[in-house]
Design a protein around this nucleic acid. Structure first.
Lengths: 225, 225
DNA sequence: GCTATATCTTACCGGGCGGTAAGATATAGG
DNA sequence: CCTATATCTTACCGCCCGGTAAGATATAGC
């Protein structure tokens, strides 16, 4: 069962005693659910699976959630909350549009290495009810608009080359979103490494900058962090 | 291949007559299956769904496939075949590493707008048997290695700035892979537009290449890059 | 027409899983 | 201790869906 030794203590300890804080237990359910959803997908994760990992039985889950889908939705909400947090501060910060994009990528990439963050982009929206789906979709649109506005800002202030902001945003967001598909906490790459190189590559590009064509009028490159 | 979304006669016509070419029918099953898998996911698509869209009944499908999973695997195979096609020619072509990466992105992005291509990256590998999964994984690794080698080539020939090829490849591949998550044939963006801007943005970056001091003044036309 | 064969349909089974009913059990408060 | 209450378990239902059995039907070749 214990996948990696380094991991935090198992969530089922929250259920060791009956009179333990119910809020803690609810969170424990959510965390193990998120784990399993990422391991096996929502569809292939049964309520029995979740219960088993928590050392309880399926019906006990219904003390904290009404339906399976509610667990899923709460995972989405937790994840979007994380994204929201990191994005609001960027929007308020100063800097060119390009710098904001870099900051966006750095920050967003970090969230994509956290389980709840990964859930937001990796889990299948089709498992949500139409109402919940609308909620999630609305939030995702918000993220996209945020990024797109940074790009437009950059085009206006001259830090970003003219382009279709919509496609550019899809490109950048896609690269970052995809992190949730391959990132593994136990893997060789740290979140920090990924985030910083993504921020650089996606803004500056792969291509080598030719020093002769550059005027050092521009004060250094935008650094992410 | 008609580009307009409206065209393309429905696949169920392949089953109009009993004595129609079985190969055509098999392909018709595959194509409608791919459609449905992309619309509803593999898990939520029942064999009855597929059969219904083909105006036949479920057991008829078993004349062409042994199990549901086989249909899925064949979708993967068709898709990887498409990718293979477009990648081999690039590898052989001349040019700098950076140019090859650009060609890779352009070509690969185009495949990601075709149903079978989308299946490869969008469908859940967890629905495959361990054996089939190994096959698909192997193929995906091959793609990744190809891209990574282009990047390394570019670093060597000086067309690409020094970086970790592994992370860079993840970044680029991710952006392109994600296309299959949002692209819609009936949507406003054409495959051509997407592919060409992706190729440019991902190699050259967002950042304005030539830092001309004019900030607001319209740069009178050019910047055609 | 008649027959052989591939093709397709109707009817059905069984397992997995979300969800529920009803009863057991632990704990706080008196 | 005793009781009230929240918490958890055992047992079970019903639906969905992949897969199968067995029989119907269309078509080619004679």
């Amino acid at each position: 069962m214990p996948k990696s030794a380094l991991a935090q203590q198992p969530h089922w300890k929250a259920f060791a005693s009956r009179r333990r804080d119910p809020t803690t237990k609810r969170e424990a359910v959510l965390k193990t659910a998120a784990e399993l959803f990422l391991e096996k997908s929502y569809g292939r994760t049964s309520l029995d699976d979740i219960a088993e990992r928590l050392n309880i039985t399926k019906p006990a889950l219904y003390h904290y959630f009404h339906k399976k889908e509610e667990i899923l939705l709460e995972c989405y909400r937790w994840g979007t909350g994380l994204i929201e947090e990191s994005l609001t501060e960027i929007a308020g910060s100063a800097g060119t549009g390009l710098e904001k994009v870099a900051a966006f990528v750095y920050s967003y990439a970090n969230v994509m290495t956290v389980n709840f963050g990964r859930c937001v982009m990796r889990l299948d929206e089709g498992d949500l009810s139409t109402q919940a789906l609308e909620e999630v979709r609305t939030y995702k649109r918000k993220i996209d608009r945020r990024l797109r506005s940074f790009i437009q800002e950059g085009i206006r202030d001259g830090s970003i080359a003219p382009c279709d902001p919509k496609i550019a945003a899809f490109s950048i967001a896609g690269a970052v979103n995809w992190i949730c598909m391959w990132y593994e906490p136990a893997g060789p790459l740290t979140a920090e490494e990924i985030a910083s190189q993504f921020a650089r590559t996606l803004t500056q590009g792969l291509a080598r900058r030719k020093p002769d064509s550059l005027r050092r009028a521009a004060p250094a490159g935008p650094s992410a962090d």
